[in-house]
Amino acid sequence: MGDLLIFVNFYLLPGLVLGSIYALGAIGVSLVFGILRFAHFAHGDMMTLGAYLALTVVAVTGANPMLALPLAMIGTAIIALGIDRWFYKPFHDKSTIVLVIASFGIALMLRSLIRVIWGVEIESYSVGISRPLVFFDSLRIAERHIWIIGSTVVLMLIVHWLLTRTRTGKAMRAVSDSPELARLTGIPTERVIKATWMLGAALAAAAGVFVGWDTQLQTTMGWNLLLPIFASAILGGIGRPYGAMAGGMVIGLAEELSTYPWIGTEPLLSPGYKTGIAFAIMVVMLIWRPAGLLRGRVY
């Protein structure tokens, strides 16, 4: 197998898959931060929730995870609305640190609830080994990777359409720009907040399903992805959904490509340090350009 094919099969494609997952999670984190002004630490566990909802659909119907995806997204969006209604909304007029702490609480509650309902065993959507599709004799792509990257592209186009073509989407950008002016303009902030939760949670659920499909389902899967997802949102600029998409892709690719033997024959970075990449990028961005690549808000 040529060097290029090794690069594509084992570094570039996994990087794009990881980037898709980070991007989908980061859009929600960035929107919630932009509109509700707090770091939502339960976002990772919303991803886990989406993944496990899809697991139930897959187990009951025997369907492909792709078919379970829309149901998992809708279910997670509804649960997020409930969480906002009963746990976050009562604190809307409090200082944002109260909401941050509340979201920590929600993260713990969601994870415990998932353990109670689905158990603590490691789960998987499929049994057995699926053979990758082979193109041009040697380009091997797992079918799920095509689905994951393809659906991410579709979801991002939908997000773009929502934010630029629909009234509520434009209002979300307006509230993110200036909440005070939005109120003075007559935009119903509560409705915008609900839309934000639905969109953010649905995308988080999609990211969760993709993680579970690509690897396996564990109750800590979402929590463990929180750091790279926040790093992606910060890299792109807080409150900038397009920045979050780009930031997620950059960090996903950077993590995977950092282990490629760029110099000599040894991996540039030992795979054990892969997760440090996101942290390093976040630290550098916060020092060098805290507003992010797309000039988001600085608090």
Binding site: R173, S176, D177, S178, E180, L181, L184
Partner: peptide, 10 residues
């Protein structure tokens, strides 16, 4: 309002 009276990214 006097200041911040447009949505700059819209």
């Amino acid at each position: 309002p006097q200041t911040e009276n447009v949505f700059p990214n819209l």
